[in-house]
């Protein structure tokens, strides 16, 4: 196994770890970290697979640079949203509870209606 292929394999492992984390972890901050690990894995794959015969190829490096910029921007946006969510709800948990949120809203609406009904009586 050549040196560059090792990079690619490590990249693939990191990628899989990152994807698993992104899907399974409940805490949002961990999800953001997992996304970054996934990104790093892909960048390693790009650089590792792009190099043939130990001559470094500038094109994948340029791509990785672009990719890093995109990843930084995405991370910043994600963090901003998580902060906003923490500010609003006091939690930074997984988003699988949207349904319960809907239900609470329904409850609020019915309560409001009942109140209106009482007032009109």
């Amino acid at each position: 196994m050549t040196g560059t292929l090792i990079y690619a394999c490590v990249g693939a492992v990191l990628f899989v770890c990152g994807v698993t984390g992104l899907i399974l972890l409940p805490h949002l901050l961990r999800k953001v970290l997992a996304f970054n690990i996934m990104g790093s894995g892909i960048f390693l794959m790009l650089v590792g697979l792009g190099q043939h015969d130990n001559i470094s190829d500038p094109i994948p490096q340029a791509m990785v640079l672009t990719g890093i910029v995109v990843a930084v921007a995405a991370t910043a946006l994600a963090l901003a949203f998580v902060r906003r969510l923490f500010y609003l709800t006091g939690k930074a948990q997984s988003v699988a509870n949207l349904k319960s949120l809907d239900q609470t809203e329904e409850k609020l609406i019915t309560m409001e209606r009942n109140k209106e009904g009482d007032a009109s009586k």
Binding site: L22, L49, P60
Partner: peptide, 23 residues
């Protein structure tokens, strides 16, 4: 947030494919 995570995952997986193709 949910949309963001999905879209990042989607483009990440896509980019892994790009790496394989370039390789």
């Amino acid at each position: 947030i949910r949309y963001l995570l999905v879209t990042l995952l989607g483009s990440g997986v896509y980019l892994a494919g790009v790496a394989l193709i370039y390789g």
